[in-house]
């Protein structure tokens, strides 16, 4: 599924990452625990999280995650956007809860990691 479809399915807004919109996502992982995210080896991975801080973006950077969805419209700082931009990571903000956003994307065919 393309990142632009993830934006529309989650009723989200794209905070940064215009150039990522056509990129393909195969799997998603929903977690607030970055230690756990760092153990995932899948490619074309989407991260859904309620943890809105720089470490969420750094974790995506190290794990080659090209798109992060922040749930419940939590505010994304300018520094997070800068680091994401520098590393070509798309940020989507959705009003939905982690449960709802994950459920919608799962039903739409995105695979789980486990």
């Amino acid at each position: 599924m393309k990142i632009k479809e993830i934006v529309s399915l989650t009723n989200g807004s794209l905070i940064t990452g215009e150039e990522n919109l056509e990129q393909l996502i195969e799997r998603a992982f929903s977690s607030d625990l970055m230690s756990d995210v760092l153990t995932v080896r899948s490619d074309k991975l989407l991260l859904l999280t309620g943890l809105v801080n720089i470490q969420a973006i750094r974790t995506a950077e190290m794990s080659d995650i090209c798109c992060v969805v922040f749930v419940r419209n939590k505010k994304v700082s300018e520094e997070m956007v800068n680091i994401a931009r520098e590393n070509r990571i798309a940020i989507i903000q959705t009003p939905y809860s982690m449960f709802k956003a994950s459920g919608i994307l799962y039903s739409a065919g995105i695979q789980p990691v486990y």
Partner: peptide
Amino acid sequence: MGFGAGMG
């Protein structure tokens, strides 16, 4: 901060 699971 999203750490401290003893997985590192």
